[in-house]
Amino acid sequence: MGKLTRTGFITVLVMVALAVLPPMFLWSGQAFYMDLATRLVILAIAAVSLNLILGFGGLVSFGHAAFIGLGAYAAGIPSYHATWGGFEAIATYNGLFQIALAVGISALYALVTGAIALRTKGVYFIMITMAFGQMAYYFFLSLDIYGGDDGLTIDVRSELPGINLDNPLSLYLLAYVSLVVAMVIKFLIVNSRFGMVLQGAKGNPERMVTLGYNIYLYRLVAYVISGAMAGYAGFLLGNFTTFISPDMLDWTRSGELMFMVILGGAATIVGPVLGASVFILLEEILSSYTIFWQLPFGLMLIGVVLFIRGGLMGFFKGKGD
């Protein structure tokens, strides 16, 4: 029980801090920190989604940024056409439509790429997910109508009933509530019968097949859920930055998400949130001291991976669990 309450304690601590601190920054006139927190919370949603397959499914996906990008463009492209005309079928500022589009397209992309990638294992899976990620990257890079390399500016944010996304606090609260919902969904999934099969397949795929589980199908469904969730995070990110570019889909973004998960602690619910928080804050603090901030940052990350098994959550849980 000691372990449980400790994890619970950290979860509450992190979530309360994220709920209370950013609005306080805003009210004390430090909007910059509010921006930082918004980016942090949105990326935390993406990290939580990645952790479903990486931490609990043992599937090291190196192309997760593609889903974020798809989600962001699903917000940006309808808005672009609503402003400048053309493509009447999707031209709208309606946020609910854009969310449906973001989630739907991400899920579909996950279904198609997952169906192929999940036929491979280990390093090949990493490489093929990365290749699919880069494929999406080059797709948007070559899409001149939406800015191509120069990116796409969102002139009008998504319109949601009762929520004004132009208001930083509203946007933050939406992101925060979304994060909580994402964590609850993942908590339910992980502990459900589906989650047990997913974790069993991570620990011993051969055994699970012998028991009669078609683990390919279970993994594929997890991959689709994870992709859809990341697509939703992309919708929020597009609305936050109001500027979308292929850079959002670059493989280095996927790598950052992986690092957040591993840094915080894979196969835990709050780990990716903690990882995202530490990642974003460290990045911010170190880069204020030196332009070579990536060097100490990289060394710190290597240190965590080498010396703390199970990431920060593994460290807080203590040894002997």
């Binding site: 459900s192 047990m196 991570k202």
Partner: peptide
Amino acid sequence: SLVMGMSVLDNVALAVQARDGHSFRFIKPA
């Protein structure tokens, strides 16, 4: 060949679950 990261009971329960219909059930705690 066992799932080492799970408890003994979890391992065996997975065997029971395998013949208890499909496991695309996402809500109820297993």
